[in-house]
Design a protein around this nucleic acid. Structure first.
Lengths: 210, 210
DNA sequence: GATTCATATGAATCGCGGTTCATATGATTG
DNA sequence: CAATCATATGAACCGCGATTCATATGAATC
């Protein structure tokens, strides 16, 4: 957790530091990020950096926390309210659409998230074991989907959850990635859903057999 | 490219170096791998390391090349022969099965590959731009699948190729990963295929409408 | 046996980057 | 004004890890 001095800073300056950190962390792994680069970009002396933070990891954890808050705020806004009302595919659509929008609006935050995700050791250090992973979340709504009769009861929920997570991840990469495949709107989400839906939907229940 | 001295080494010693390098590179990113650790594990002095290689990257590129060769050899063995005979889904099954087997047999090589894949800059340095990516490969067989009437003509081949690549990637992670989801055999492959097939298969063509 | 060539060895060098430290500045308090 | 905080500053320190170098070893050649 950053020191008091950091939170006592004038908003503008504090914002500059956060901005610089995001810029630098988005460029590569945690290890590759340089404190001096952050200080330079933020226009503060290195010495000040250690006036504000315990060390590099302190700042990193703080940034990750900001990202998580940002994302949770958006998820709350986008979905939680409708959670009960929606059927599985509608809900899944909201999840992906939300993730898509987030990635589109905050490509750097997504880059940071992906890079943390790839560093399991750091990931656990930052989040501990207690956090509900993305896969757990999917598994939960899949279970509900099966119970409600929306999904083919034959599927393996844990496995499908993993795949949906992977696809969510792929979505992020497609959006923020090298952009060979530039897709506006939520077209991607619908394409993805169309693909998924016909794969795991319980057709027998949805329309009387076939 | 390693120096002659390296190739002049007695097989056993050369093998030890390769083994040590794989071990170390599999543990983290290229940047995180330590020359001294490799030398130690291989039981050679650091000085000797530079007798054999220009630098760390020289060895790394060599290892990547070995991995690529290993993988290509397997793909050739598993598929190329049947490429023409097979329909799309049969072919896709072979691709995934091959990837699955490779991941199962060479988890460390997969770890190295994944980590390189996550470092775009290094990736391009190692492969240049000319190499056919995984997505290109999928796109090719998808195009063939559409032409042959196996696939829904409405799909976007580039997009589906990206997703199949992502799933292939997910497969690798599931297999070599933390193993929460331990699946033997090729069960995973079939589950995955079942999921995919019903999503993109041209049902109108496969069985007369519905 | 002397010379040459190929290789081995590990201590020394060197640069990079995180962190610390000694010193300054400037506001607030008595 | 003196004294005490809180914060600012950037040069110095320090460890790590890649790479180099001076020196040894030992086989092959003359």
């Amino acid at each position: 957790m950053p020191k008091d001095t950091f939170f006592n800073l004038p908003d503008e300056k504090r914002q500059r530091v956060i901005e610089a950190a995001i810029e630098e962390f988005a460029k590569g792994s945690f290890r590759e990020a340089r404190v001096t680069a952050i200080a330079e970009k933020a226009g503060i002396p290195v010495g000040s950096f250690y006036q504000y933070f315990e060390d590099k990891k302190d700042l990193y954890k703080y940034i990750i926390q900001l990202i998580a808050e940002e994302k949770i705020a958006q998820i709350n806004q986008d979905m939680i309210a409708n959670m009960q009302r929606y059927g599985f595919f509608q809900l899944l659509r909201e999840v992906y659409a939300s993730a898509f929008r987030f990635a589109k609006e905050h490509p750097r935050l997504v880059a940071i998230g992906l890079s943390l995700w790839n560093d399991k050791a750091l990931y656990h250090e930052v989040y501990g074991d207690y956090v509900e992973t993305s896969a757990d979340f999917f598994q939960k709504i899949i279970a509900k989907g099966v119970a409600d009769g929306d999904l083919d009861p034959d599927i393996d929920p844990a496995f499908v959850a993993r795949l949906l997570t992977a696809l969510n991840y792929a979505l992020a990469e497609i959006v923020y990635g090298d952009g060979k495949l530039d897709l506006d709107d939520l077209e991607v989400v619908d394409k993805m859903l169309k693909l998924i839906e016909n794969g795991i939907k319980n057709r027998a229940a949805a329309r009387g057999g076939c």
